[in-house]
């Protein structure tokens, strides 16, 4: 016990003379403050170099995507309905005004039919309108994609003039003349026209699928016109 007390005293006498003086405390506090300042600087640099450009890029992307959405007007485009009755009278172009010069018909895409027949494996990936010059809507395009990277496009566009169809094989879509060919890259192209529009189907499908698709569109359009008459 006596030795243990002596041990305690020896430790106390050996160590108690050492104190953390005010200078050491001050230096420690200064280092802590310096760390805070450095951390704030790092934060400001991060904001300047990373956060602000990232936010700006995000805002630009958001703006661009909103513009695309406005252009496509998805709320105006009919949902992916397979009913042929989804053709609405508004498919018809607006009546031309009597004093304006004759111009190619403008497409009203307030309602667009999604072709009821869809080749196996394909699904609709996007519906867009394409605009050139000052015309409101020159074409309506429905794009399809398949899991095996196949791509397919159905396009309805204004018909400014008749196209040459050399190299195509004549077929019929309903009572309309149509032309079909398989391109060198394997894409099938089927085009036909009615009084107002030109239609085309282009994609990696069989000619039979292209004809069935065209037929389903034709029937849908006919139904729509009959409804319009009634």
């Amino acid at each position: 016990m006596k030795e243990l007390e002596a041990l305690k005293r020896a430790l106390q006498e050996g160590l108690d003379g050492h104190r953390a003086g005010p200078e050491l405390r001050r230096r420690t506090l200064e280092r802590a403050r310096a760390e805070v300042r450095a951390k704030e600087k790092r934060g400001a640099r991060f904001l300047l170099l990373v956060a602000v450009p990232a936010l700006a890029a995000f805002a630009i992307l958001l703006f661009l995507s909103m513009s695309e959405v406005r252009q496509a007007r998805p709320d105006d485009i009919a949902s992916e309905s397979t009913s042929s009755s989804s053709i609405r009278p508004s498919m018809s172009p607006p009546p031309p005004s009597s004093d304006s010069p004759p111009s190619p018909p403008r497409l009203a895409v307030s309602k667009v039919v999604i072709p009821p027949y869809m080749p196996a494996g394909y699904k609709v990936s996007e519906v867009v309108t394409e605009t050139r010059d000052s015309r409101a809507e020159d074409a309506v395009v429905i794009r399809y994609s398949a899991l095996d990277d196949g791509e397919l496009e159905w396009r309805r566009s204004a018909k400014p003039n008749r196209e040459r169809v050399e190299g195509f094989e004549p077929v019929r879509v309903g009572d309309r003349p149509a032309w079909i060919r398989t391109a060198g890259n394997g894409d099938v192209v089927l085009i036909w026209e009615d009084d107002k529009y030109k239609y085309s189907i282009v994609g990696r499908i069989t000619e039979g699928d292209a004809k069935l698709m065209a037929q389903s569109i034709y029937i849908g359009l006919q139904d729509g016109r009959e409804e319009e008459k009634r």
């Binding site: 002596a6 020896a10 006498e13 050996g14 003379g17 050492h18």
Partner: peptide, 12 residues
């Protein structure tokens, strides 16, 4: 710096 008594110095 330790100012120790002789016995404590040995122990230290």
């Amino acid at each position: 710096t330790a100012v120790l008594a002789e016995t404590n110095r040995e122990l230290w």
